[in-house]
Design a protein around this nucleic acid. Structure first.
Lengths: 334, 334
DNA sequence: ATGCCGCTTGCACGCAATTGCAAAATTATG
DNA sequence: CATAATTTTGCAATTGCGTGCAAGCGGCAT
């Protein structure tokens, strides 16, 4: 009574008075069915509430249609925006997203990928963390495609999508100098993820080329609170910086709030601030943060089109996308 | 050569020198296997990189382990926080989340549920929109469980999780009055979702009971920009309100920013503001928004524990959770 | 009428697992 | 040591579906 099973192709076949294969062919694009049996099947299916079992189909075709999204800190603006774009793109191409949370703990990503393998996901997209080589090898060996977003890794096989972090950092350094700033600082988290470190490297190097030393301060995870703490550290020095590049917008928001409300400083008059990601909050008028836009839609498009493509893909495929500078009011001039 | 298939239980059985059932039993908790065959199987599995095929398992057991999350506007702080909590809870209980984006378009949710049926999801959790009755009936008939979060619907079968929106709205009305406000306003979006309308109703009713008329203004979707527009509408009246309850925090942030930066008003001295959701940004020092906290973790726990429970569930199960008032600085006094 | 061609259709097998049942192997008991 | 009791184990059936193969069917030219 309660656990009534789903309708199967068999039942549809009986009701339509055809063979089960006819039902199967009706729902398989490119199969040979005459228009009239096709219609009989569709009517019967509609009447019974039949829907193809994608578990069984996946079993046969050896292609589940599932793509695994591996994410940490989904509650964060940038991560959720990217996740949204990815699931949307996947849906548009007939795939479906499986979502797995990870945390900082060791092996968390490996566990997620194991789940992806169990469900025979066609591919996995990794937005956070970096899996063990043995696991990625297993994925690849089984024909599962892998996409690494913003994780600068040099192993072969996966598609790697990155931004021009270093170049962007250099651009903002010159922007600061052009605005008359001379005491530059970089605010980072302590997570040390590849893209954050690339921004730091690029900023320090570009400033160095202009003859300026950069004060680098790192603290905690990549969030608003850390931005406040770093502000505390930078603004209690005897020589305050007059421009700060924050590794992410969340850090920048925290920094600006502390600078304004705790140290009564004016942005951009006394200190210029820039961020990275272009989260929605960056455009809110309390911040007006000048920042670099992550091209989330383009990232999603690149990832998904590569996943579904049967084009022979080069062994070491890597995409580098450009981050546009979005100019707002947190830097003087412009 | 490329599409090397996954390792099957058959191959593991051969390598371990046992039958395929022994392999199956090794990976089925509660099955009877002797310690030594079990070990032989585990060794062989490890060596070959074998992982149980959950598609096939789901087929046999008639239980896929998949739970469908149906969400719109995932990029939004509240939605992403709730989604995160849900996927985490699901993982903790051995289930896995499938994520489907919906938009405002007709039948978008129905399409999502169809996908859920195709993949034989054990359950679906709907965070946005409301599906057609014919579809939910189909889900329920097939033994798929349904959870509706913040969608006040009266159909039988699904679990409904709601907050005490009306009561919360009444509490904030008295708080405004206690702070000395007399000209109350309510800022809403035009989406007219049940919980938003409940907040509006509750606020208007409670104010009415205190002898106060409420100016209600509605605009657009539920986001920051709409908050700004509503501010425009409310603050250009000849009699400005001195307290505004915004249906969500995003609206409240937009409202506060417009009030401060566009109308040069001081919050809370000239106007008090309250929101709903307690998104992370509400606690940022630029806002310090007094708001009601959505108990996302508790919502997730309730939903998931009901999904996995075999307890006979009453036909019309409904949970009403309490939204705590988080007092910050956007209302005078306290 | 016969032969040929092309499109449909059904049969039967295979995909990767779980599980009831009975035989075999192990252990406990008299 | 024989017998009973208790696991363990393998066989075979089952889940829902896709697909190669051969048979069936209709149309057309000879």
């Amino acid at each position: 009574m309660s656990q009534k099973l789903f309708v199967s192709a068999q039942e549809v076949a009986e009701k339509a008075g055809v063979s089960r294969s006819a039902v199967s062919r009706t729902f398989t694009s490119g199969a040979s069915v005459s228009p009239k049996t096709r219609q009989k099947v569709l009517d019967a299916a509609e009447a019974l509430g039949y829907h193809v079992n994608h578990l069984a189909r996946g079993l046969m075709r050896n292609e589940s249609g599932i793509v695994c999204l591996i994410v940490s800190e989904l509650g964060t603006p940038y991560r959720s925006a990217l996740t949204r774009a990815l699931t949307q793109q996947l849906q548009n191409t007939g795939k479906i997203a499986m979502l797995i949370n990870t945390d900082r703990s060791d092996g968390s990503v490996d566990l997620a990928l194991t789940q992806a393998i169990r469900y025979r996901a066609d591919a996995s997209i990794i937005l956070s963390g970096l899996p063990d080589k043995s696991i990625t090898d297993l994925c690849l060996k089984n024909g599962q495609r892998l996409v690494l977003i913003n994780r600068d890794d040099d192993r072969e096989g996966p598609l790697k999508i990155n931004l021009d972090d270093e170049d962007a950092a250099a651009r903002i350094a010159t922007a600061f100098v052009r605005a008359g700033c001379r005491k530059l600082a970089f605010a980072n988290s302590q997570t040390g993820t590849p893209s954050l470190m690339a921004r730091e490297r690029g900023f320090v190097a570009a400033a160095g080329a202009l003859g300026i030393d950069v004060i680098v301060e790192r603290f905690g995870p990549t969030g608003y609170e850390s931005g406040r703490v770093v502000a505390q550290q930078l603004l209690t020095r005897k020589e305050r910086p007059d421009a700060v590049f924050c590794a992410t917008d969340l850090l920048a928001c925290g920094f600006m709030d502390a600078a304004r409300h705790q140290f009564s400083m004016s942005v951009p008059d006394q200190i210029c601030v820039a961020g990275f990601d272009d989260i929605e909050q960056a455009s809110w008028s309390s911040y007006g943060l000048t920042t670099f836009a992550q091209p989330v839609d383009m990232i999603a498009r690149e990832a998904v089109s590569w996943l579904v493509g049967d084009a022979v893909r080069p062994e070491n495929h890597s995409v580098r996308l450009h981050a546009d500078l979005v100019w707002r009011t947190s830097i003087r001039g412009g």
